[in-house]
Design a binder for these strands. Sequence first.
DNA 1: CCACCAAGACGAGACGAACCGTCTTGACAA
DNA 2: TTGTCAAGACGGTTCGTCTCGTCTTGGTGG
Lengths: 202, 202
Amino acid sequence: MPSTTAKTPDVSRRSERSRKAILRASMELVGEVGYTKLTIEAIAARAGVGKQTIYRWWPSKAAVLLDAFTEVVRSEDYQAGIPDTGDIEADLKTVLRATADEFSDAAFEAPYRALAVASAADAELAEQFVRRLQEPGLEVYIARLRAGQQAGQIDPDLDLRLATEVLLGPFQQRWLNRSGPLTHEFADRLVEMALRAFAPRA
Amino acid sequence: MPSTTAKTPDVSRRSERSRKAILRASMELVGEVGYTKLTIEAIAARAGVGKQTIYRWWPSKAAVLLDAFTEVVRSEDYQAGIPDTGDIEADLKTVLRATADEFSDAAFEAPYRALAVASAADAELAEQFVRRLQEPGLEVYIARLRAGQQAGQIDPDLDLRLATEVLLGPFQQRWLNRSGPLTHEFADRLVEMALRAFAPRA
DNA sequence: CCACCAAGACGAGACGAACCGTCTTGACAA
DNA sequence: TTGTCAAGACGGTTCGTCTCGTCTTGGTGG
């Protein structure tokens, strides 16, 4: 019987120059025109690249953007982790305030929102989005909460996974829905309320 | 100087028959083909209506869907409110379990997800989405929490607005990101953790 | 009370523009 | 020699606007 294998391109012969130009062009364009008006044709034109070169290596414009964004964020965050001064409330407030500021920066906002939106619509992309961008973020929170457990500031039986969802879920909800401002005030109140749920049982 | 007013259509002469047919057709089609493949042309064809009739009354396909969904949900939910048996933990678990089931139903999921996605991408639509669909839902939670305050089960100084965000944010995050299953188990653990944060201070 | 009429929404679909994703060409690099 | 590359032609969709002729409706004059 005839093989139905789709001929996969030869990765070893891929042009690094074109790859970089494509990722760069998509980040620029998504900031300029927004995600819905972002077009494969425009990316190719801006990058000085044939359309086929994009279609050969990526399944969708969202996938291009995910690669582009991952490249930027890689190693920049997540490396340092969350500071541990011994005061978990202060540490969490510091990080959540910084996150609030980051999400108020348009240069970060536009592509990240585009990815979040595309992920909500496309289950396949969502798996990649969560695994490559969200999970690493969760891990640093879990690490800090675990340290808090060992310091006796946090219930040792707490489900740390669920705890990060309680801490970050309301934050993401506000941001995605634009149902409220991402102020330092909000970050502080959220951390305070979450820590009341995380505290060791009396 | 010449007026630049866009001629607004005459509402009093609007065809109720066509309006209903359009809303009905969009709900049917979004379930059949999904939101991204939902097309104004297809809605018009299914509804037996000219395209112009849709463009005349709605700014986007998302706006059509929001009207269609609002019409269905109107008065169906939100009327009853959250049961008050005196046991706030049990009551919240009941409602959140029911919500989890609702979000697992494809007939509800498809159009609602479409609206959530479109809202995340479009600030103007988001304002309508939050106000017409999400706010009414929040209000019934706030009412039940307020009753809990009066019953002495909940901290009287609690910010009830923030409380609903803590309760529902993690739920929405899981659902939108598909970062975990919306089980009864999850609903119960979430309510339990939230109530620890809501409890009166010792 | 009713016949008439002008205004405007209606169904249908033609129209050009934008993008889609595929395919072809000739250059070039491994 | 083989396969990617830039460039762009190609047919197919859907867009949003527009132009028809029809139908509905509210106001007017007999």
